[in-house]
Write a protein that binds this DNA or RNA. Structure first.
Length: 574
DNA sequence: GCCGTTTTCGGCCCGACTGTTTTCAGTCG
């Protein structure tokens, strides 16, 4: 069992214990363990007993449960808990505004086990019989249900990628000579994927049966010589297609999509008397094969420059490819630093030095430590005194570390009225300020827009963190007039963040493109809470590429001193 | 359930917001 699997079990145990009303500190211990394991770089399954015991937060009991899960794939304690409640009950916890108490109450009083039953009870007024349930709660529930339904069946790109990577490694064991890679929305880097499409070139007949024997397969949806589909445990569907070498490029192009992009490309083919399908590019007149072994051959044969997969959304890329005006998209290797990270001073998992060396090992030249401000009490946010002491500590660590430059910053809360959570004279002492919204998400558009405008007007704000507050598959962005916010940011020289956390990716690709078009600079940051998180930069880069961004649009492609000089605080003239 | 130079018990980050209360419970981060 991998780390994600272990983390999921402990997280589910935490949820079930909470519904049960167990000791909150016991619940926290399970959640904490899930969090730690989920963030670890090493495979816990490969560690020795002593190493597992050495992980802070893992004691005798949890170590034994990890051992049982690794050895048997099951956990008696977990199974017993699941006997007490139907499995579907956990789905209700995913609803916005529904917590464990409500789930427990609904199950105990009305016997509600599923989302469908909850919807029926909310619709026919039964919910209102319950203590603490009124008309507004009923409306909230119905809205949450509708939002949830629109997300069902989609998966975060980072999770889909992890599954695709594991599956590809498994397939290569059977077919080491084959080329196997993801296509579809995963290859285009969309923020969520409905399913995973894999393409195999030069594979033997043994590959398909090997695919359907993958240990995580729950159900085989279809199996044939060139295409098979399986449903994995956890609900992800994976399709594998096997194609001949002379069709590899055409198949990759065809299955990568998007649909709109492909329709437009095929239209260009027809205009040239050519026909494009998954097997190749052919002359209509005599059926003669023109191209198909490589994607670039297909595009070139149509008079188009090779279009990077991230741009294939029919948002102007075909015209740009035809006129050789495609952007030189930013790449991970262009990024020289990260401007948003946390440490154990607030809710991070590692100290300043550990985070700094991890950033250096990830190839970065600089890192801004931006712990939370006091309003985020739950995260042990810093008040002015602690923020300044922390800055002193960061600068002390910086002075003795080689190969990485640290910026002493803060992620300062933007309060509900748009004022900042720390006093100006404190913010002025820091190297960099990321300002973010973490509260009062329910404000109306006018109020929220004014709130952000007020923050942007502050001369001490350099960057707006995760600007729309969305959580993919969980929470919609808050109401916001983004155009007004972007125009203010452009005027004040405030940069907008592309947050690389896979459940945020905020700004989104289309918003980041809008920001660039409005004259706003972007930064690509990890919001790292653990050393392994610097790997997440690739997802921020994917968003930036989908936004058509070039290195010059992204501030942290600059070296440390150029970046420092380009921050708003050093450019403000008044 | 974890943790410990205050060490085997008794602590363990809590404030804002909402909707439902008539003094608070639940959710969120």
């Amino acid at each position: 069992m991998d780390n994600a699997g272990l983390a999921r079990v402990f997280s589910d145990i935490g949820d079930l214990l909470e519904i049960k009303g167990a000791n909150p500190f016991k619940i926290r211990a399970y959640r904490n363990a899930a969090d730690i394991i989920g963030h670890m770089a090493e495979r816990v399954a490969d560690l020795t007993e002593a190493d597992v015991r050495g992980i802070p937060g893992i004691g005798k009991d949890l170590a034994a449960k990890i051992r049982e899960l690794v050895d048997t794939g099951e956990l008696v304690y977990f199974d017993a808990l699941r006997q007490e409640f139907p499995a579907s009950i956990l789905d209700m916890l995913r609803l916005q505004g529904v917590g464990p108490k409500t789930v427990g109450l609904l199950y105990a009083e009305l016997g509600i086990e599923t989302l469908d039953e909850l919807e029926a009870a909310a619709s026919d007024g039964r919910l209102r019989q319950l203590k603490g349930m009124g008309a507004k709660k009923e409306q909230l529930l119905l809205r949450s249900l509708a939002e949830h339904r629109s997300r069902v069946g989609r998966h975060l790109v980072g999770r889909a990628d992890a599954i695709a990577t594991r599956l590809t490694e498994y397939l290569r064991m059977e077919a080491p000579e084959a080329t196997i890679f993801p296509v579809g929305s995963l290859r285009r880097g969309r923020e969520t994927c409905g399913d995973i499409d894999l393409l195999a070139v030069n594979a033997t007949d043994a590959l398909m049966p090997h695919f359907t024997r993958f240990p995580d397969v729950e159900r085989i949806l279809g199996q044939g010589p060139t295409k098979s589909s399986v449903l994995l445990r956890g609900g992800v569907q994976v399709d594998l297609r096997v194609v001949a070498a002379e069709s590899a490029g055409a198949a990759a192009q065809y299955f990568t999509g998007s649909k709109a992009h492909n329709i437009a490309v095929r239209d260009i083919a027809l205009q040239r008397g050519l026909k494009l399908n998954a097997y190749g590019l052919f002359r209509v007149a005599d059926g003669e094969y023109v191209a198909g072994a490589a994607e670039s051959d297909v595009y070139e044969a149509l008079g188009l420059a090779y279009v990077p997969p991230e741009l294939r959304e029919h948002r102007g890329e075909i015209a740009a490819a035809a006129t050789r005006n495609l952007p030189h998209l930013v790449e991970r290797s262009d990024l020289r630093g990260d401007l948003h990270s946390h440490t154990t001073a607030t809710d991070g998992k590692a100290d300043v030095e550990t985070m700094a060396t991890a950033a250096r090992d990830a190839g970065l030249e600089y890192l801004a430590i931006t712990d939370h401000s006091q309003a985020l009490a739950m995260a042990n946010g810093l008040d002015e005194r602690r923020a300044l002491a922390h800055a002193t500590h960061i600068r002390e660590v910086n002075s003795r570390l080689e190969g990485i430059t640290l910026f002493a910053g803060i992620e300062c809360d933007i309060r509900a009225d748009g004022t900042l959570d720390l006093a100006d004279d404190c913010l002025a002492e820091l190297d960099l300020v990321v300002a973010s919204v973490h509260s009062a998400f329910g404000q109306g558009e006018q109020e929220m827009t004014d709130r952000l405008l007020r923050a942007i007007e502050s001369p001490f704000v350099d960057i707006i963190g995760h600007p729309t507050g969305r959580l993919l598959l969980r929470r919609d962005p808050y109401a916001l007039n983004l155009e007004r916010v972007l125009d203010a940011a452009a005027r004040c020289g405030v940069a907008m963040e592309i947050n690389s956390q896979i459940h945020r990716l905020d700004l989104s690709d289309s918003h980041a493109r809008l920001a660039r078009d409005r004259g706003v600079k972007l930064v690509i940051s990890t919001d790292a809470h653990a050393p392994a998180a610097f790997e997440l930069l690739r997802w921020g880069v994917t968003v930036a590429r989908r936004a058509w961004l070039e290195p010059g649009d992204v501030l942290n492609t600059l070296g440390a001193e150029d970046l420092r000089a380009s921050l708003r605080r050093h450019r403000v003239t008044g």
